[in-house]
Nucleic acid binder design. Structure first.
Lengths: 200, 200
DNA sequence: CATTTGACCAATTTCGTATTTCGGTCCAAA
DNA sequence: TTTGGACCGAAATACGAAATTGGTCAAATG
């Protein structure tokens, strides 16, 4: 069975263009990758690209959508395997935290353009994020000490306070804190425990 | 009682400089505000500023720290008034969500420099954030339908799914989703209910 | 008919350079 | 102790010329 029997020829070429563009975007970023670069990568003339895509931005979008599409596909499979809703949430969380790293290459290059300016802002935010976590942590610790809150899991108040703060930061500001929490992907069960209990 | 009996003169002038700088930073941003602008604003020569601050960056830091200091002060007062840990968390959340808007002026100008580039990334992130919320929402809805999860509050699954996603986004990426959730500050009790239950 | 290409265009980017501005220093003056 | 004017080196800016780039189009290819 030949490829062309399953996929249209233009679908194949489209995929080739997206793959080639993806390689170059990861290496050099969106801005520094020219249409001629992409054309050369896939062994065609520049004009040919416009037969398959209306603009450079569309190619970029296709690359990102493919990348995220894979993320969703993986997540969907993992969710299907899980039986309980809690396990489904865990599966989703695990995929998302895991894949994030694999998407880092692409994201990183895009982000690098921003980081130069962002540096200052993030530095300040980071400094005060620690203070916020401490505040929340103390409140929770008091609550636990008074028996007002019951500990779950291994009762990692640090993690709970971090999640609480991260949520607040995440919902209130496009420039959120850095996710430099140790071994985050190792703590999926714990994270989901904390968050899921809110639904019970 | 005169001011100088409580505050040192240089403390007053320092405060004046910070206040003047704050005004200009809010109006024109960090970059476009020159040391001479600040000096003119407080009615002094440029060199005088260096008698109170070692550099422009230190002035900026003082402005931001003062701004955040006020946030913490307000939060602290609110927390003191509350009796239960849950109410303390609610107070903290309320202050934080409320003050964020007041800090918007300063943040906005700083962010504007980034937004030009960020636009593209955020646009894409936003698009897929909706998909993620839907996925999580469905999982939760299933869990609730099966009796696996119990609803709390008015059982707003939308909100719960949003928070879950926001938390994941917040902890895993410095470029998090936009906080365009309606009437967020009106839902403090609900938000804290959802998040606090994770500690019980 | 489906696909490719090279010439071509307008707009943007880059570049080189002259000039200005800005953050920061120093010292005399008050 | 505090201020302001002269001054410095580095960085930002201005700006016109030249090169690039995203995108178009009609002709060519098969």
């Amino acid at each position: 069975m030949v490829m062309t029997e399953i996929l249209q020829k233009d679908e194949i070429i489209t995929a080739e263009i997206v793959a080639g563009a993806r390689t170059l975007f990861e290496k050099f970023g969106l801005k520094k990758t020219t249409m001629e670069d992409i054309a050369r990568e896939v062994g065609k003339g520049k004009s040919s690209l416009y037969y398959y895509f209306p603009s450079k931005y569309e190619i970029f979008e296709a690359v990102v959508n493919q990348e995220i599409g894979e993320l969703f596909k993986t997540a969907y499979k993992a969710i299907e395997k899980a039986t309980t809703a809690k396990d489904k949430l865990k599966a989703y969380t695990r995929v998302r935290l895991g894949k994030i790293n694999k998407m880092a290459n692409l994201s990183q290059v895009i982000k690098n353009d921003l980081m130069d300016n962002m540096e200052v802002v993030l530095k300040i935010k980071k400094k005060h994020a620690a203070t916020q976590v401490k505040m929340v942590k103390q409140i929770i610790a008091e609550g636990v000490a008074k028996g007002e809150f019951k500990k779950i899991g291994d009762g990692d108040i640090d993690l709970t306070a971090f999640l609480f703060t991260a949520t607040l930061t995440g919902i209130s500001n496009p420039l959120c804190i850095d996710g430099e929490f140790p071994d985050l992907s190792q703590k999926v069960d714990e994270i989901v425990d904390v968050m899921v209990e809110g639904i019970k």
